[in-house]
Design a protein around this nucleic acid. Sequence first.
DNA 1: GTAGGTGCAAAGATTTTGCAGTGCT
DNA 2: AGCACTGCAAAATCTTTGCACCTAC
Lengths: 153, 153
Amino acid sequence: MATAAAPWGEALRAHGYRITPQRQFVFEAVTDLGHGTPEEILAWVQSRSPGVNLSTVYRALEVLEEVGLVTHAHLGHGAPTYHEVDDEVHVHLVCAGCQEIDSVPAQMAQGFIDALERDRGFSTDIGHMTVQGLCRRCRAAGKSGRPRGVDRT
Amino acid sequence: MATAAAPWGEALRAHGYRITPQRQFVFEAVTDLGHGTPEEILAWVQSRSPGVNLSTVYRALEVLEEVGLVTHAHLGHGAPTYHEVDDEVHVHLVCAGCQEIDSVPAQMAQGFIDALERDRGFSTDIGHMTVQGLCRRCRAAGKSGRPRGVDRT
DNA sequence: GTAGGTGCAAAGATTTTGCAGTGCT
DNA sequence: AGCACTGCAAAATCTTTGCACCTAC
């Protein structure tokens, strides 16, 4: 039973990394949360193992990203959000009103992506694509996105 | 000649803000640079007026954004990039290889945006839309985007 | 047993804020 | 002349790094 590693563990092994409970918790957090910032992931992990440190979360995410288990996207502000890789590729929709994150299947953007490829030779990293805007609910509530004032486009 | 304000000045006046050389420089920097981070904007401004402080740049950008002269988008990492508002609305293309920023007219994404509107009731803030990927040059050079390794999609 | 991994604390980087002096209106 | 704006410096965030101890293999 020496090498009875779970599939996610395999990925670590394959890259010469060790399997540790901290890394497992971090990966589970990402999987469970769907989308999470380092802070949110830490909170989740600490609910199982209070001693885990923020820097460990950062380092674990770095490793998990390198071995291809998770990715991150930059949504609003400066908050990087991590999510699992192996589920269906999707585009992130960030609501400027409620900060909520929605996802849509990548195919919806296919035409656009093809156009970029054709016209610019630009190869899109679909999973990192971020779309800012206002969700249905916030539009109905008449929110304008940013608190300040006029926000053209 | 009391109120001989330039068009950009008008916008400030209209919102009760004063016209100052610092704000003018910051706005010129944004216009001239096309895309710029606060740091880059500071550098540009200081080339004209060395005494200007970083915090002044931040405050000026905040004001200029409020009156609708500039906007910002979050491109790679945590670097907010500011650009002029009144030119044609465009989508940002960020190359993961060379960090360069390209723009494409918003119409290219129209189909996608319409689909989001139709299916999700999501109103897209086109100017803030960010697309990560690899530009033609970096693809040719065989870059993979992130230095680390595998990067799916 | 050994090298990689973790926790802790300090260092960095980036953005924000308080305050007194300055300059736009 | 009044009050918003600026410069400076300190505070607040968020992320990274150095080091001694611990643990997976």
